[in-house]
Structure formats: C-alpha cells, structure tokens
Design a protein around this nucleic acid. Structure first.
Lengths: 129, 129
DNA sequence: GGGTCTGGTTACCGCAACGAAACCGGCAGT
DNA sequence: ACTGCCGGTTTCGTTGCGGTAACCAGACCC
C-alpha cells in the first residue's frame, strides 16, 4: 500500500483547485467516454452528444487538447477530415469517470429521495437551484 | 464481482447529467473533507475555506443538506450555534473524492506540462481560458 | 455557377455561480 | 445602553460557461 501524498486542496495556490473538475464540466467526461473505443471524427462526436453545439464541442476539444487529454489529427485527404483520439493521460481518466458512475449507480436513488423529501417538506419556501 | 449497470450519461433525462459534478462545484468536495473528522460549526468551516464568503458557504451547505449529504443541527444553547455533519451518503463521497485526489497526485504533472507545452508553442495565437 | 458536406469561427446573449459588503436578530457581558 | 459574537440574509455587481444563429473556406458534384 503506497502511502501517497494527497494534494492539498486547501492551499489556494494548489492547481488541484483549478484542474480537478474540469473533468466535471458539462461535456469532458462524456467526450472521454465517446472516445473510449477509438478515434472519432468531429461529426461523429456531435451525434451522441445530442445537445452540444459545434461551438461548445470545438471549445471543449481545444481545452482537452491543451491539457493533453486528446490529440487532434487532420487528414488532408478527400474530403478532408479530422480525428480526435484519447491520449494515455485522457484514457487514465476513464477509471475516475467509472468511479463516479459507480457512485451514481449506487447512491443516486438516495440522493433523489433526499431531494424529493426536502423539497416536499418545504413546498413553498426554499428555492435552491 | 457484481456487474453493475452504469448510468446512461447520454440520456438527456438521466439525473447523472444534473448531479455528478455538483461534487465538482467549487466548494462541495472541500466541505466534505472538512467534515470528515466530525461535525463542524458554520464559523469553523469559514476558516479553512479561506476564500469562501458566508453567503456562498450558506448556499452550498443548503444545497448539500437538500441532497442529503449533510445534516444541520441547531443548538439553542448559549450562545446558540449550529453544527453541520456528514450523513452516510455524504461520507460515501469521500472515496470518490479520494480517487480524484489520487488521480491529480499522479497525473497533474503531465497535465501541467501539456498545458505549458501547448501555450508556449502557440505563444501569440490561442486564448483558451 | 449553385448546392452540399466537413469542420469549424464569429458575434451576441442569458443565466447561474461567485463574490464584496452591509445589515440583522438574539443573547451575553460590562 | 453599548459592544461584540454567531449565523446567517440582502443587495448589488461581476465573471464565465454554455447556447443560438449566422457565416466561412476548401473541395467535390452537377
């Protein structure tokens, strides 16, 4: 058992504060999942992420490329197209994402029930997003 | 080995889409960590979360209470005070948060380096947050 | 020359999160 | 009566993520 040193999330200068849940932004985790089984083209990513717009997809992919999570490869063939693929770093996120999905699978009912109970007990008053 | 069914993040109506990274909001994970060793008072939480404002702390705690992650207990003693404590559900988040911190501890250098390399190679052009 | 496919970019905008600062009500101390 | 502590709430303002719609450049097809 390697006693790893956890990052100090409480230090204001710790990059953990900036980074960790970029994964938690609206689309990054889903894009990683989309790329799990191999490279995909821009247009292929648009389909499963039904609600995303081209702009946001492009932005998110750029940010992921910047952070070394995906690679962008242009094929100047005919018609020219572009492929996005996971880097090893991006792929390493899969275990984390899976852990999050497992947590959801296990505990989401409790959370939903808690939320229901809470809002029904203060039916009128509170307004928490 | 229980073959758990992962939530379908791609279904627009899946609550996974709403919930998962509420954990990833700016403060929830840190508050969970603060409460790890036992109940804390409002004022005690303000200290380690040095940058948080009372308003945001109150909002975040309310949301966490709504979701069944913490309990709020008033002590009408003298002087009156309030204690926040993790519920079992909230405590179950610790493993997930630890997984995220482990990932950061392990891969943050790569990510930082990727970011540095990216921004230095396009020193002038790109502006990604 | 006109339409279409691909992989975007640009301009604009709304909303929710986040934050700074002031205020508040009950009670204790002096 | 005045001061301060505790646990907030109120007001106002800023920032930034995400979204909508329009446009674009290259290449191919007709």
């Amino acid at each position: 058992m390697t006693t790893e040193l956890k990052p100090d999330m409480f230090a204001p200068e710790c990059p953990t504060r900036q980074v960790p849940m970029r994964i938690g932004d609206k689309w990054t985790a889903m894009i990683v999942l989309c790329l799990e089984d191999g490279p995909r083209r821009f247009g292929e990513l648009l389909v499963p992420l039904s609600a995303i717009t081209k702009k946001v997809l492009a932005e998110t992919l750029r940010a992921m490329e910047r952070d070394g999570l995906v690679t962008r490869t242009e094929f100047p063939a005919n018609p020219p197209h572009v492929e996005y693929a996971l880097t090893p770093l991006g792929r390493s996120l899969l275990t984390l994402i899976d852990a999050a999905r497992d947590w959801c699978a296990e505990h989401l009912p409790e959370l939903t029930e808690a939320r229901r109970a809470y809002t029904s007990s203060f039916s009128a008053a509170s307004k928490i997003s």
